[in-house]
Amino acid sequence: MIETKNSLDRKVNAYIDNLFAGIGASQQLFDLKEELATNMKERIADFMARGMDEEQAYKEAIISMGDLSGLVDDMRKLGQDTAKQTVYSTMAARISTAGIIAGVLIILFGIFTALMLFFMSENASLMNGKKLLMQLH
């Protein structure tokens, strides 16, 4: 997801991953995590430029982000929706596969019946022809 060039980057990514742990994946969650990580890293860099050491800057950045629980809830809802969608789509896929199989069987049955009737009537007309010939003789 994000280039992990040093331990600080990894720490920030791990913090954000942990924040959204156990939440169903969605494009929006992936994007939000990247957005948060990028901005947090920039904030840490700003704090360090003001003279804080890395550890202190990291802690300050987490505190000053504020309460992210609202966003976490949003993402959890989104993740659940995607999970429901997946279940729904696999069910829909199964139903349509069954439909295709049933359709093909009906078509095959139709062709078979048509052929059978065709040959039966041909046989019948042949028989009639033979009867006619017999009568003529």
Partner: peptide, 26 residues
């Protein structure tokens, strides 16, 4: 972008007000 908007809001307020980044993302 997020962090820059956060800083600009502090600047706009004359350093009298800070809108938390978490509030911004929502």
């Amino acid at each position: 972008y997020g962090y820059e908007i956060y800083k600009k809001i502090i600047e706009l307020s004359g350093k009298q007000y800070e809108l938390k980044e978490a509030t911004l993302y929502t």
